[in-house]
Design a protein around this nucleic acid. Structure first.
Lengths: 169, 169
DNA sequence: ACTCTTCATTCAGATTTCGAAGAATCAGAT
DNA sequence: ATCTGATTCTTCGAAATCTGAATGAAGAGT
C-alpha cells in the first residue's frame, strides 16, 4: 500500500508549487526578494536571532546571510544589536517597519486558505490540522526553522536592556 | 476559531521549509539547480510540454524557460521536437538519461515520509491523504503544475511518429 | 601566550533571472 | 494574396543573487 504514500507526495507537491508561486507573487508586491521575505519571517518567528542561525534556517551560506541582513537593515526592516556575551555576534530583530511590511503585504495563499478553511465543518478542520501537524513532524528537521524552541539564546534576554543598536562595519 | 487556520498555516510553513531544504540538498547532489529540477519534474509529469507551459508552471519568465531548457538539453536530460501543427513551438520531453537522473537521485524527504508513513495505522494514512488532497485543492491554482489534465496538446499525439529531434537555433 | 575553533565580513567570480527587442509563425480580415 | 495583430520563442545586455575562499576579530582550552 505504498500507493497512498505516493498520492500524498503528489498532493504535497501541488501544495509546494502553489506556495512557490505565491511566494514569488508576494515578493513582487512587497519589492523584496523571496529570500529576503524568508529571512524576515524567520526573524519574526524567533524575535531575536544571529546571522549564523539565519543562514542555517534559510539554507544559505553565511556570506549570503550577511548580504540579506544588510539589505533588510538598509530598508530599516531589521535592527542589529551587538551581543554582550560574545562580541563577534549580534542579534537581529524585526523593526516596527519590518513588522508592518510583513503584515501589510497581502498573502493570497494565506487568505485563500483561511477563507476556504472557515467554510468547512468543524470536525474536518480538526482533521486537517492534525494531519498537517503530523506531516510537519514527519518531514521537518527538529532544530530548524523554529528556533523559538531553541534555548541557546534565551539566556541573552538580559542583554535587552541598555544595549545600543549598532550597524556593524 | 480562526485560531485553527493559523495553526494550519504554521504547520504548512514547517513543511514548506523542510521541502525547501530538501530541494536544495537534492539539487546539490544531482548537480542541477533547484529550478532545473522543477522543470525536469514538470516535464516528467506531462510527458510532453512546450516552453511556454513550462514557464507558466515553473513560474518563471519565458526567457528563463528557454535558458533552463537549453541547459537540460545540453545535458541530454530532455529532447526537443518541433511541432508540426505550429512551427513556432516545440515539445519538450524527458530522455532516458533525464528519467534516470530524476529517479536515481536520492530524495531524503521522499524517503523519510514514505518510511514514517508506512509505519502509521491504516485509518490515519487515509486521513492524512484526504487532508493533503483537501489542502492541495484549496490552495493550488486549477490549471497549474498538472497540465497533464490540459487537453490542448493531446491532439498532437499523432505527431509522435516520424518527427525529427531538432535542436532549435 | 599559544593554538584551535567559531562568527561575520569582504571580494571576485559564476550563475541566474528578467525585460525589451526581434524574428518567425499563425489566424483572421480585407 | 496581403495585411494586421497576436503568439511563441530567442537573443542580448543589465541587474541581482549566491557562493567559496580569504580575512579579521573574538572566544575557548591548554
Amino acid at each position: 500500500m505504498e500507493d497512498r504514500a505516493v498520492s500524498c507526495l503528489i498532493a504535497l507537491r501541488r501544495v509546494l508549487s502553489a506556495a512557490d508561486h505565491n511566494a514569488r507573487a508576494v515578493a513582487k508586491v512587497t519589492g523584496l526578494s523571496v529570500q529576503q521575505l524568508i529571512v524576515l519571517r524567520i526573524v519574526e518567528d524567533t524575535t531575536e536571532i544571529t546571522p549564523m542561525m539565519i543562514a542555517r534556517s534559510a539554507g544559505v551560506a553565511p556570506a549570503t546571510a550577511t548580504a540579506l541582513i544588510e539589505k533588510l537593515a538598509q530598508m530599516d526592516y531589521v535592527s542589529r544589536r551587538r551581543s554582550e556575551s560574545d562580541r563577534r555576534r549580534y542579534w537581529v530583530s524585526l523593526t516596527e517597519a519590518g513588522k508592518a511590511a510583513l503584515h501589510s503585504a497581502p498573502d493570497p495563499l494565506h487568505q485563500k486558505f483561511s477563507e476556504e478553511f472557515a467554510r468547512i465543518p468543524d470536525y474536518e478542520q480538526a482533521m486537517i490540522l492534525a494531519a498537517l501537524e503530523r506531516v510537519a513532524n514527519m518531514v521537518s528537521i527538529p532544530g530548524e526553522t523554529l528556533p523559538g524552541t531553541d534555548e541557546s539564546h534565551v539566556l541573552e534576554v538580559s542583554e535587552a536592556l541598555g544595549a545600543e543598536t549598532i550597524a556593524p562595519a
